[in-house]
Computed example of a mutant assay.
Amino acid sequence: MGQLTMLLIKEIYYPILAAVAVPANLMAMVILSRGNCGLSKCISVYMVAMATADLLVVIINVMAYHIFSYHFPFSFLYHTPVCKFILYMAAVNLNLSVWFTVSFTFDRFIVICCQKFKAKYCTGRTSVRVITTFMVLIFFKNIPLLFAFETEQIINNVQWGCRTNVAFASSAPGAAFVWFHSAWGVWIPCTLIALFNSLTIRRIIVASRARKGLRGHSSENQNDPQMENRRKSIILLFTISGGFTLLWLTTAVSLVTTRLANINYYRGDRTDPGYIATEIGTMLKFLSCLQNPCIYAATQRKFREELKKVVKSPWTLILRLVRKWKYI
């Protein structure tokens, strides 16, 4: 009964997630790239990069692997070379999504806590360089994953499926890569995000208290726009960092307890606690791909205004065409 429940949840969860997350991230990319949300160039670059990485996670990790490859086991996607490439890109996409978030968090930390370094670092050119550097490092870092899997079966001289390469996983370099992969993908980013956000929030609170002391306790404090912006910044930081931590917590624990050999082995014993923990962690971490667009829509007024314009624009165009056709 337990394994049937988990399979049923996956059958429902992944298609719904893909149906919602793909248009949400596409919309975020379009809105943020237009530059009408009142954000600086460097912030827009990071946000567009995060939305792009999240979109790739949904397309490759969720749709290609968990939906199409799983339900059509002998399709083109199930050929061993294609399967290895999907697993490789799945790891790359997740790393990009996580480290782009770290980069954005560090940028906000510099803006608030390092005023002298702000002018040099927080620029559009620097943000592009940071994003490009992480992309190159992550693509090269995950190359060993291409050797971590082997052919599952051979039918008529055609290689099908992927399974963990036992020789690689049991070797010293393979074991070292397993733990490095876990630390790089989850523990180090989570630690850095928590550190940068805590220092940023602490600086905002200290500055807000100092400003209150300077302005006194008059009613003028209630209409202080700078303090209101700081309050919104605290809410945004707590929401992003708290949501990221909660959604990745199960994965962080299962990565250490089950190791890489169990993470991608979705067709094994479905009653094993390690399998259940891995599946729950996988579903939760993929949900983080929908987190940022929801946070933007909930906390950014200009983002909501641009969202309304983007949603209305196709209907406005259709209405104009209909009116023009009736006139003709």
Rank of each mutant, 00 (worst) to 15 (best):
I235T: 12
L146I: 10
V256Y: 08
L199K: 12
A207Y: 07
R231N: 13
S171R: 08
F238D: 11
R215T: 08
S218R: 12
P173V: 10
R203E: 09
P225W: 07
N156F: 11
H181W: 12
F139P: 00
A176P: 15
Q159P: 00
S127G: 05
A210N: 08
R125P: 06
T239F: 05
E220M: 10
L192T: 08
F238P: 01
N157Y: 10
V166S: 05
V128L: 12
K212H: 10
R129P: 00
F238E: 14
R215A: 09
Q153Y: 03
H217F: 13
I205G: 03
A169Q: 07
I240K: 00
S254T: 15
N142S: 13
N229R: 13
F147C: 10
E150M: 08
F140D: 08
A172K: 14
T133F: 14
F149T: 10
F238S: 11
V166C: 02
I204F: 06
A207K: 08
L145D: 01
P189I: 06
S198H: 08
T164G: 07
P144D: 03
T133W: 09
F147I: 06
F238H: 04
W184Y: 15
R215P: 02
E228Q: 13
I235N: 06
N223W: 10
F149Q: 06
V136L: 13
R163Q: 06
R259Q: 12
W248N: 04
C190S: 05
W187N: 03
N197R: 14
S218I: 14
L236T: 05
G174W: 05
E152H: 13
N229M: 15
F149L: 10
G216N: 13
V136K: 04
G216R: 09
R231I: 06
A252F: 07
P173D: 09
N142P: 11
I143D: 15
L199S: 06
W179T: 07
L237G: 05
P144I: 09
V166D: 03
S182L: 13
P173C: 05
K212W: 14
Q222H: 11
I138L: 05
V256M: 12
S171A: 06
L146Y: 07
Q159D: 09
S241A: 13
I234P: 01
Q153V: 14
F139M: 07
S254Q: 12
R230S: 14
L145C: 03
E152L: 15
T126F: 14
T126L: 02
K141E: 05
T257M: 09
H181A: 08
I143V: 15
F168E: 01
L247N: 00
A176C: 07
N156L: 06
T151D: 09
F134I: 04
M227F: 05
S171E: 10
H217N: 15
T245P: 00
T164N: 13
A172G: 14
S233G: 03
P189E: 06
W187R: 01
P225H: 09
T257A: 13
T251H: 02
L255V: 05
I201N: 02
T191D: 04
I193T: 04
L137T: 08
W179Q: 11
F140S: 06
L199C: 11
V206T: 06
M227H: 15
F139V: 05
T151W: 08
N142Y: 03
I204W: 02
S182K: 05
R230K: 12
S218N: 15
R129E: 08
G161W: 01
D224L: 11
W184V: 07
T133D: 00
